[in-house]
Design a protein around this nucleic acid. Sequence first.
DNA 1: GTGGTCTAGACCACT
DNA 2: GTGGTCTAGACCACG
Lengths: 232, 232, 232, 232
Amino acid sequence: MNSHGGLEPVPRRSTAALIADQLRSAIMYGHLAPGDQLGETDLAAQLGVSRGPLREAMQRLVQEGLLRSERHRGLFVRELEAEDVRDIYVARLAVERASCELVMRGNRGEALARLTASLEELVQAAETGDRTAMSDADQAFHQTLVSCSGNRRLERMAQTLLVETRMCLTVMQDVYPEAAELVDEHRKLLDAITEGDEKQLLNLIESHMLDTVDRINTTGPAAIRRSTSAQN
Amino acid sequence: MNSHGGLEPVPRRSTAALIADQLRSAIMYGHLAPGDQLGETDLAAQLGVSRGPLREAMQRLVQEGLLRSERHRGLFVRELEAEDVRDIYVARLAVERASCELVMRGNRGEALARLTASLEELVQAAETGDRTAMSDADQAFHQTLVSCSGNRRLERMAQTLLVETRMCLTVMQDVYPEAAELVDEHRKLLDAITEGDEKQLLNLIESHMLDTVDRINTTGPAAIRRSTSAQN
Amino acid sequence: MNSHGGLEPVPRRSTAALIADQLRSAIMYGHLAPGDQLGETDLAAQLGVSRGPLREAMQRLVQEGLLRSERHRGLFVRELEAEDVRDIYVARLAVERASCELVMRGNRGEALARLTASLEELVQAAETGDRTAMSDADQAFHQTLVSCSGNRRLERMAQTLLVETRMCLTVMQDVYPEAAELVDEHRKLLDAITEGDEKQLLNLIESHMLDTVDRINTTGPAAIRRSTSAQN
Amino acid sequence: MNSHGGLEPVPRRSTAALIADQLRSAIMYGHLAPGDQLGETDLAAQLGVSRGPLREAMQRLVQEGLLRSERHRGLFVRELEAEDVRDIYVARLAVERASCELVMRGNRGEALARLTASLEELVQAAETGDRTAMSDADQAFHQTLVSCSGNRRLERMAQTLLVETRMCLTVMQDVYPEAAELVDEHRKLLDAITEGDEKQLLNLIESHMLDTVDRINTTGPAAIRRSTSAQN
DNA sequence: GTGGTCTAGACCACT
DNA sequence: GTGGTCTAGACCACG
């Protein structure tokens, strides 16, 4: 915090980075829906920037895979097929599994502190019943988990994957688990970290990811689920 | 909030404004103490900016009166005399009294909502006993009050005055009221707004300001207190 | 006065402060009109200074609120909406009301002497019929009034507000009162101070401010006027 | 292949994407070395494009983390610390481990065919002793491995990580293994896939990654290695 | 292409 | 030596 710690460098991010954040946010919350075209004139006006930095920001999202570029047609929000949903969760599993391993062998204390706070947010969101707040807290929990790994590259990968996860959830809201279950699953993850039970933690994170895939698509992903579980 | 509201213009403040905020904060929390010289080379390095924008930011604070300029010597954090303390609170009284009047005749509903939230923060801070948090909440309450007036000029004046108030408090910590009393005084202010009792509100805000002056300096300010009270 | 030969310290104010004064003057007299962009290259050439100090001076005016900064676009003279006019006069009322109170309980003798001189200037200006001279004298009267309060912070606030007042007047010249009325209103203020009638003084200063608002905007502000008057 | 005469859609990728490829290549081969500044005027001239698309391409690489942006200074090739090297290999391990799992449970036949071809390239490069060719073949092998997973997101992550791996190797050439060892390690990976021994494959890929980290930094990472191995 | 913004480096004045 | 001042040059954004 700057509030009590004295003088810190002023945080100055480039305009393109700020715009990219705005766009990522808009995609995440479904304000820009899959398939939507991003008209640069309109967007530039809405964001209060000129087209140059806007185009640069959009290229960032193209690189991330959140936007799709059609030459001489424009840029569109990427549409997710069933196959993508599976890919996303499998990739998340890879990233978060590695993060879990690093957390268990790294600064577990810091992780516990930060994740306990994140869980608290999730509990509060669950109490209000606000689905968006719950999703926000869910996402924040996982972002914190990966952040605790201390591996910047895993963090960057997770950022994009979590936005894509939100895109899935926004479209198919019925697959989102009940509040109680959501809190419970995350609490179990935190418990495993507390107890230092790495094997248990890895099993839980795997279930956490693959159960969702199952919930969304009951054919095929089941196979993935079974075989992947077999590895332990 | 950007979180749920779709696309908003990206907030892009000038570097000088950001630096000014940092410096104001540092002065407010006493990290830059009254009388300290602001070496531009060091500061620029600490803040990660070059001397140009830093100098521009410092000129902003000179204009505000938080810094004092000595030609060819440098810039120093303004030192507050006893006289200044009285001036600050009298000026705050002028600003906040006007704000109170505007609030009572303006959108009282919005004011009630925002101030209730601010009071809640103050209560929580009081519970923890964290003096800095209490001061933060105290300051935020008054900033909100003036903000509810809808008068930008009063807001700008209040900003500087509140920073100066913090400088006073940082130096003379013993004059700060007990947690219970602090909460109580603010709750009374809120009550008066709730009940629409303007006369009562003005009396309270006046006591709130002048009591502090009395607490700091028991001679002279008493006279101010008495005569000013006589106006109603 | 310095002219009688006594050696006084050279008033070596910083270059930025001198430039800021020049700019403030130019804005006040409408030489730099609301909405005008301040091209730094041109201005630097005209003022015979380099861009560095000029930029520092301009940041002072940004802090005062006389200039508006658009990132990567430049600095512009602030444009005043009808809302701003009301805000300015309400803020002036807050500052001058507090000043009046301090004057009545402070060194009333000095105030009488200085304000009598100021009134004399106003009378002379009124006789010539020079509107600019009248505005200058009007402004000087109020600056003196606040200065007599002995409160530096009120003085600083008043300085900016008076410049903004001039901006209003420059734009809408037709609202400025007749010479006779102008002199009369100020004479009444002085009379109330002479007689030590604080209540009367406060009523007069309030009318003095709010009548102008009414004159500029006859719809809505009337309501403000009425309700505000009700406070006494 | 396209050479047999069938008409295929022209791969009309956007200009920004093509430029990004060029830049990525230049960074990978060390033509643009870590710490180098990318002057946009010069680069635009060298690449025969205008600054617009070039800037868009560079923003893609910023997003990937290959470039670092310093506001109002320019863009620089990211410099890799020892910490980064470890992060890169740990992240690669996460991605390639997941890919291995998917390959073993997916179309193993196609993987075998493609990886056998890749290994052959590596053998030939080893025979010539050309270090660049060896690195190219090494990289291609792993790219193929991840590609066989059929997970686009893992592929995208791997792309950046492999470029970063090359940056490491370009800087510290002495850590690169002997030709014979390099071929041997990859042949063992292929063997494990042929035999369908998933457990063995995962052990091998883990050693493949972490041995390199050990080779680069012999202190500390050893601990990482040991504990990570403990997971199986 | 123009102009705003920031950085870097040099010179001068004061302590 | 340090701060005050100015110039040169590059990046950044807008039209």
